[in-house]
Nucleic acid binder design. Structure first.
Lengths: 138, 138
DNA sequence: ATAGCTGCAAATGCTTTGCAAGGCC
DNA sequence: GGCCTTGCAAAGCATTTGCAGCTAT
């Protein structure tokens, strides 16, 4: 699968008891209407808002991205320089990371990578598994 | 394999043209003489210095950790809250991450995890592969 | 009406940097 | 002596927070 359709995103927002405010509607539109997987930082999304002639404060972008993550619309990934990316694709999948470009890229879903998992240490269980393949120039 | 022996670490420092200063000697001692894999933050290493009754500025700890990383003595890992960890084990291996404790843990080397890798996108090749398994409470 | 949101600016936390003083060869 | 290092304090960057004013229901 890939990015969730916009309509479904709206429903998830409301079901979670979040009010459909101007800001949240705009942000979900930008995030989910382009219909492709997107690895976006708060900064980048904020710029996208401005580029569309709208205005949402950066703090609200951050807060909203986290709320959307809590609700299951986004997935959060921390890498490289310590920047936080939000992935519009919440399915189990892994990433290429291009350190030069500071860009994330989905690994095609049919590339089989994981063959087995180790046992979790005592008292814990395995949650999410992140595989990040760093890319270098040829 | 595991953590590099102290003597070998000293040699690597000198071979790289780094002067064996008081600070660098102390830090390499703390890092490599305990003889076990360690996932340490600059802050934690700095505290360890103080606990030993010595003094090295935090800035120098940061700088030194990066120099050691450049020289191949350490491996850098960024996770969770965006904190930077330095791993005394530079071999290919992967990690459990306990978000509650903010602790990294090596995955036992005999746990086979990766079975195949996808092709790198055009113009790039695969560098390092990081697998991070998030742990949750039972 | 009122509980929830937003925006601003200030605060935070981690890390890096500029520069003067000190140490190694 | 000359270059590398260090330490301090200041700056930097990404992100979070406090709070007064606004908005959806």
């Amino acid at each position: 699968m890939s990015t969730r359709p916009y309509a479904q995103a709206l429903k998830m927002i409301q079901d979670a008891g979040l009010r459909p405010t101007r800001q949240r509607l705009l942000l979900s539109k930008l995030l989910f209407e382009r219909g492709e997987d997107w690895h976006v930082t708060a900064e980048a999304l904020h710029e996208d808002v401005l580029k569309n002639g709208a205005k949402v404060s950066l703090a609200t972008v951050y807060n909203t991205l986290h709320q959307f993550t809590d609700v299951g619309l986004l997935r959060q990934i921390v890498i490289g320089s310590g920047k936080t990316y939000f992935d519009t694709n919440t399915d189990d999948h892994h990433h290429f990371y291009d350190a030069d470009e500071e860009q994330l890229q989905d690994i095609p879903q049919d590339s089989i990578i994981l063959s087995g998992l180790p046992e979790a240490p005592d008292g814990s269980k395995i949650g999410r598994v992140d595989v990040i393949i760093q890319l270098e120039k040829d």
